[in-house]
Nucleic acid binder design. Structure first.
Lengths: 188, 188
DNA sequence: GAAAACTTATGACTAGGTACTAAGAGTAGT
DNA sequence: ACTACTCTTAGTACCTAGTCATAAGTTTTC
């Protein structure tokens, strides 16, 4: 025996993890054992065959592509709404919303929740954000539930410009505030 | 012939592009022709076999993983970067970024591009946004290319707080500006 | 009606396996 | 020393999703 079985299997695992595109034959050559031994090892370690490995890598990529359009619809779920007055939405912070390094939610998701709530609360076909003044009060972490509350502060009778104040909370603790100055297409 | 050859081949192309995981047999079933016809079609269109297709998808993913580890969490593509000084990114506005009604880009995407550029330009493991003051100068439409330029304005020696100014342009026309006050974990 | 284009069938071969059986080598216990 | 056990190797039949080449049948076009 060139190496103990255990040692070989550990190396095998890491080798395949590092490069899933390697065939049993290449592995046999690398570890100086027969192809059958490699296959027994894979069986014991329940490592799938080359083609299956490649397939899952490819499928993951496909999933990622779908997942990486996270800013698509209205961010968060609107649970209460009085047009031109107030609105509330909830947003659950998941894996895809946080920095991998520190599990803190990326700012633009909190902004997106608040901004799209500000857009939604306005009783108009075509509301757009003109300006915003925002503050991140404390960082939001993975799995926290953010509740955003929007209040329409005043509507300029002439221009239709509207100020919307949004405050976001996690467990009643303020995490984000934003003042949004919104355009309207028509003055309702 | 259920469909002309040309028509079938065009559909074949797009079908495979959309779902590279489909076998010749499934395609034959779908187009109501024999497997051999599908194979001739693939030959003429030089579309590789299932396994090769899956492999290239998987390989791309591997490439992506290596290339985009640090910049992966950035919205838009960074094309220039001097840490703690300046950075530029481009962001192409696609279908998924606009309001369906009027084809205008949703504000939070412009914010996300600017904000993540502000995060990236800071030479620190853990940069977070504290405050931001933003203005949407004119609305950005479908298929426009937004170029965001970030400049680090000043770094507080004591707190490490950093002001980053971001201006975004479409064809040299200013569409967005933002002042981002950023935290750092350590004072470099 | 023949030529050209298209479609289908058939057979031999491939990579990279699975599943199973069988046999030999090395080591440990008694 | 003999047996029991683990580990390794070999070989066979079978699988999928193809390739390549040849041939034959079917339409379409001139």
């Amino acid at each position: 025996m060139r190496r103990s079985k255990k040692e070989r299997q550990q190396l095998l695992s890491s080798t395949i993890q590092e490069n899933p595109f390697i065939t049993d034959e290449e592995l046999a050559e690398k570890f100086q054992v027969s192809v059958q031994t490699i296959r027994l090892d894979r069986l014991e370690l329940s490592i799938p065959e080359l083609r299956e490995r490649i397939k899952t890598v490819a499928e993951k990529r496909f999933d990622d592509e779908v997942r990486s359009l996270p800013l698509e619809e209205v961010i968060g779920e609107i649970i209460d709404m009085e047009l031109d007055q107030s609105a509330i939405s909830i947003f659950d912070v998941k894996e895809e919303h946080v920095f991998k390094r520190n599990q803190i939610a990326r700012g633009h998701h909190l902004f997106a929740q608040a901004n799209s709530l500000a857009v939604a609360v306005i009783n108009d076909e075509l509301a757009l954000t003109a300006k915003a003044n925002i503050q991140f009060k404390r960082s939001v972490r993975l799995n926290e539930r953010v509740i955003a509350k929007a209040r329409v502060m005043n509507i300029d009778d002439v221009t239709g410009r509207t100020l919307v104040q949004v405050s976001s909370f996690v467990n009643n603790e303020l995490v984000f505030t934003g003042d949004f100055q919104m355009y309207r297409s028509k003055n309702n």
